[in-house]
Amino acid sequence: MSMTVGGAKAVIEGVIIKTQKSIEREVSYLKELADDKATLSKIEQMQADGEPLPANNPYGSFSEWRDAIEKEIRIGQNSLDRIDVQKAELMAFNYFMENAPEA
């Protein structure tokens, strides 16, 4: 099935809007990543100082807690990597929208 340039542009307009909204979450991801890294540092410091787990901590050990935070860090970094790809895609979409001939 063949698509016209006009049809492709109509589809891409919606994709551009969704991609822009996704990119707007970058600041939130950066803040979450910074918080997770600070928490990881705190966990490591508490463990090095021989402090007990906080009473309200849902994890059974520092190791479990650290593993959970490291997982959150990986997830956050993956989200930021995905946003980098989306930024490149947005550039390509915008280039197409501006330069594709309507024929």
Rank of each mutant, 00 (worst) to 15 (best):
V15L: 14
R82E: 02
G76L: 06
S2M: 13
L90T: 05
R66H: 01
A92E: 01
N56D: 13
M46D: 03
D81T: 12
M91P: 05
I75N: 04
V11H: 07
G7F: 04
I75V: 13
Y59L: 08
E44W: 01
I83C: 10
N56T: 15
N99F: 11
A8N: 02
I73C: 03
E26M: 15
E24Y: 13
N78V: 02
E64T: 06
N78K: 14
N99W: 07
A68P: 06
D36G: 11
N94E: 06
D67F: 08
Q77A: 09
A38K: 11
M97W: 00
L40W: 01
E72L: 08
M46E: 00
G7S: 08
K87W: 01
G7L: 07
K42G: 05
Y59K: 13
E51W: 02
E51C: 11
V27L: 06
K31Q: 10
A100G: 06
L33A: 08
G60F: 07
R82D: 03
I16G: 05
A34T: 14
E24I: 14
G50R: 07
N99R: 13
A55G: 10
S63N: 11
F62M: 08
R82H: 04
A10W: 02
I73P: 10
I23W: 05
A100V: 10
A48C: 04
M1S: 11
N57K: 11
A100S: 03
K31H: 07
A10M: 10
G6Q: 12
M91W: 00
T4G: 11
E89A: 10
K18A: 10
D81I: 09
A8H: 02
K31I: 10
I69T: 11
R25P: 02
Q77E: 06
Q47S: 09
E24M: 15
L53S: 06
